[in-house]
Design a protein around this nucleic acid. Structure first.
Length: 467
RNA sequence: GCUCCCUUCGUCUAGCGGUUAGGACGCCGGCCUCUCACGUCGGUAACAGGGGUUCGAGUCCCCUAGGGAGCGCCA
């Protein structure tokens, strides 16, 4: 049997970290089993759905590389089909019109709550034979009154819910449009979904959906309810916990593979392994190994993973991922002759692409001033003299290599009987503008002699203006 | 309130009846050092509580507590 999984977001916002994880699990499960992954847009809530959100979700999935084999389907385009199924249930006597008003239902619910009961519809319209004038009816599914629904959930294990806990849910609104629990069932059935992998907030819906499925004589899929992702405060992850939109991580300089890796390890593990290639995810992931309890989202670990991926990346890949970040900083990375050296020397010290760009900037363009604190600390004492002498030493240097530069720096330190820091730091500020850069010899080598000479001159001039 | 789900270091987790309860992130400290980093060595820290079952329980069962979700003409 071919495995078919699906991801059914409703387009009411961007792709959320939590949604991305269930999408990832569904996608992995399909890929692992050589099956298909279906994307279905649940846009029946016209009020809150938008085309921008559809695009945002597509963008998020695209960035993460979660490719789908089928779809995207749109529920709004399947209205006739839902109508057909509703009519079928009606004709078979498995659904009925309900003329209760919202007010009546409110009263019922209130009374039930007051009694300490779970609010649920009492089925009073099941027997009704005459329509009520002036009232457009909804359609309710005739849920079985006795027995249990048994779910053998792939992550939670066996779950048993008594039908007496359920009620006759609305499957069509008074305007005729279908509701969620109906559309999901029809879609999953029509699309041949074999494995429903979704958040465990849907567990309560599952028995209802199974009952509808059975009324339709459809085969039921396997279910896997994965736990929610929580914020640091233990509450369901939401906007107030910070960045929860997948694309925000792209903007913040994260690599998609790092985000994917973080997400797959959240609630799932394979022994002590932390880093998983895409192929390893396919090979090793198993939905039944997913943790039963919810997991807290930990941005620090994601950052660490991002760093690991940046360190291990090929320079050219880093350049491609960072290209638009460089553009945002006003740099066209493709025009930089020394782009590769710059990336190589900075990638091991950058936790994000943003940091990589930031650390690379002074290699690609002139510095626009000196960091005040650094100046105060290092542009003092003999700094000016040292730079002048250094310039004289480096001027004739040939070839201009890190090794040669290194040698000259040490010779100078020895001659003046000062620590290397007394030379490296002023020099670093002279060429980088700040007291932070890769090793000074490599920095100079990559920068090139001409730029270094110019920046030392500028620094010397600047120091001379100091009081 | 009712129903369902969940519970190992701060966090992600390993563990599938016998372990000094392991790894990772973070944090702290040593080493390295021209800055920032890297690296490396070490440290900190957990079986929610209580009953059973068993020679033996983090592992199996029950109860309690705590947390989460659902109870819409939202999805």
């Amino acid at each position: 049997m071919e495995v078919i999984t699906r991801f059914p977001p409703s387009p009411t916002g961007y792709l959320h970290i939590g949604g991305a994880r269930t999408a990832l699990f569904s996608w992995l499960y399909a890929r692992k089993h050589g099956g298909r992954f279906v994307l279905r847009i649940e846009d029946t809530d016209r009020e809150r759905s938008s085309q921008e959100s559809v695009q945002a979700i597509l963008d998020g999935m695209g960035w993460l590389g979660l490719d789908y084999d089928d779809g995207p389907y749109f529920q709004t385009q399947r209205m006739n089909r839902y109508r057909e199924v509703i009519d079928q249930l009606l004709h078979a006597g498995q659904a009925y019109h309900c003329y209760c008003t919202r007010e009546e239902l409110d009263v019922l619910r209130e009374a039930q709550r007051a009694r300490g009961d779970k609010p649920r519809y009492d089925g009073r319209c099941r027997q009704r034979t005459q329509p009520r004038d002036e009232i457009l009816p909804v359609v309710r599914f005739k849920n079985p009154r006795d027995g249990n629904v048994v779910i053998d959930d792939l992550v939670k294990g066996r779950i048993i819910i008594s039908n007496s806990e359920l009620d006759d849910l609305i499957i069509a609104r008074s305007d005729g449009t279908p509701t969620y629990n109906l559309t999901v069932v029809v879609d999953d059935m029509d699309m041949g979904i074999t494995h429903v992998i979704r958040g465990d907030d849907h567990i309560n819906n599952t028995p209802r959906q199974i009952n509808i499925l059975e009324a339709l004589c459809a085969e039921r899929p396997r279910y896997a309810h994965v736990p929610m992702i929580l914020g640091a405060d233990g509450k369901r992850l939401s906007k107030r916990h910070g960045a929860v939109g997948v694309m925000q991580y792209r903007d913040d300089g994260y690599l998609p593979q790092a985000v994917l890796n973080y997400l797959v390890r959240l609630g799932w593990s394979h022994g002590d392994q932390e880093i998983f290639t895409r192929q390893e995810m396919f090979d090793l992931f198993d939905i039944s190994d997913v943790q039963r309890g919810s997991a807290v989202f930990n941005p620090e670990k994601l950052l660490w993973l991002n760093y690991e991926y940046i360190k291990a990346a090929k320079a050219a890949d880093l350049r491609d991922h960072a290209r638009w970040h460089f553009e945002n900083a006003g740099i066209n990375i493709d025009e930089q002759a020394n782009w590769k050296e710059v990336i190589l020397v900075n990638q091991q010290r950058s936790k994000t692409l943003l940091e990589l760009v930031d650390r690379s900037l002074f290699f690609f363009r002139d510095i626009d001033g000196y960091d005040a604190k650094s100046v105060k600390k290092h542009f003092k004492g003999q700094a000016g003299e040292v730079l002048v002498e250094l310039r004289a030493q480096l001027g004739p240097l040939d070839p201009w290599t890190a090794e040669n530069i290194h040698r000259r720096l040490h010779q100078l330190a020895e001659r003046r009987s000062i620590g290397l820091g007394k030379i490296a730091q002023p020099l670093r500020i002279a060429v980088a503008g700040v007291a932070v850069s890769p090793p000074i010899d490599e920095t100079l080598a990559i920068l090139g002699k001409e730029a270094v000479m110019g920046r030392i001159d500028a620094a010397v001039n600047y120091i001379n203006t100091l009081p």
